[in-house]
Design a protein around this nucleic acid. Sequence first.
DNA 1: GTCTATAATGGGATAGAC
DNA 2: GTCTATCCCATTATAGAC
Lengths: 217, 217
Amino acid sequence: MNTSINAIRTATVKRRVLNRDKVEASILLEAVRLFAECGFEGSSIATVAERAGLSKQNLMYYFPTKQALYQRVLDNVLDDWLERMASLADARKTPADVLRAYIRAKLAFSREQPLASRVYAMEVIGGAKLYGEQIRRRVVPLLRADIAVFERWIAEGKIAPVNATHLLFAVWAMTQSYADFSAQMTLVLDRDGLIQQDFDDAEQLITTMVLAAVGLT
Amino acid sequence: MNTSINAIRTATVKRRVLNRDKVEASILLEAVRLFAECGFEGSSIATVAERAGLSKQNLMYYFPTKQALYQRVLDNVLDDWLERMASLADARKTPADVLRAYIRAKLAFSREQPLASRVYAMEVIGGAKLYGEQIRRRVVPLLRADIAVFERWIAEGKIAPVNATHLLFAVWAMTQSYADFSAQMTLVLDRDGLIQQDFDDAEQLITTMVLAAVGLT
DNA sequence: GTCTATAATGGGATAGAC
DNA sequence: GTCTATCCCATTATAGAC
């Protein structure tokens, strides 16, 4: 006899949880926008709340502090990024294919999630004071693994001997900049924003550079 | 007989002007440090003043507003950068030499003036809201000129046909990142900071990549 | 979970004496 | 040019009613 009551209770809880997720998602969407444009200190939770359609006091029910909100935004950035960049070390693929896929995936992230890239970049440029530990734990191991893959290829004679660490830094920098420096790029290109063609051109040039550097013309 | 009075007056004015320069310089030094670490909104003029050894009211005698201070910092960044990067389009030098010198100069700026690079990068990432007009006037024409040089080389058959615009973006991104992303790089390298060897390694890899990409192995 | 009210702080900027 | 004093505003955060 308790089953129906429990069922109702379960449904209510589920709806409540779903609604919380929906509200949180809209807050996080506006937060990443504002943080990318104004940085942590330049953004106010009142502005985020207003854009998300609630009061700032109500926002603080969902995120107790501004810093908690900021770190959740960065958590989401990393989650999204790690998911996209995962499993590039597929042993069945050739180095050239892996490099091509890596460049393509990282550029796609810059194109589709430029705000995420910018929030992350600002945090790193400022010295990663609020998020350094997470970077150490979640990003650094992955970058080291990528470098190790490059070094294995070199040891196996599959690519030319280059500095694997700086090769990775170079790929990171070139792809990242299409999110971070797009404001300057659009000034040079005299456009309102970057378009798909720009990313295609970038992909071709970066791929050419990297493959040529490691002797995989 | 007025000559001696005038001489004293002139000397006094000169000393006063020199002192103003000295005070301004110490303010600007601390300002670029703080802006690079905390961004525009994250920095307070009180902190800058304290570190420069004066009161914030006194600082505001030299710089009437925070924004004026910020823009002077960015002016200095550009002045320094433009001076170093000038005259790379020397027609007597080969494309390979010009590219090598360009990469070397830009990397040297990242190593010697990382704070300047970071303040500039943060401004651009945030959309260049406070300094976009200056970038349009002082930076963009130079970048376009560089691109035009690359395109002339291509037209003259001196280098392989690549996308000149994105080649410049790539060089910019790779060299700039050694200032902007050094926090992440040092985490990967497990070091306290980047050292000369890192910049030497970077220079070699970036030069290799760029020269290989344009067929100047 | 959402609201009103309010604390508590910090920051940019100004006025005026010296 | 430097100091004291002060204004005014925005912002984070909390308390408590409903």
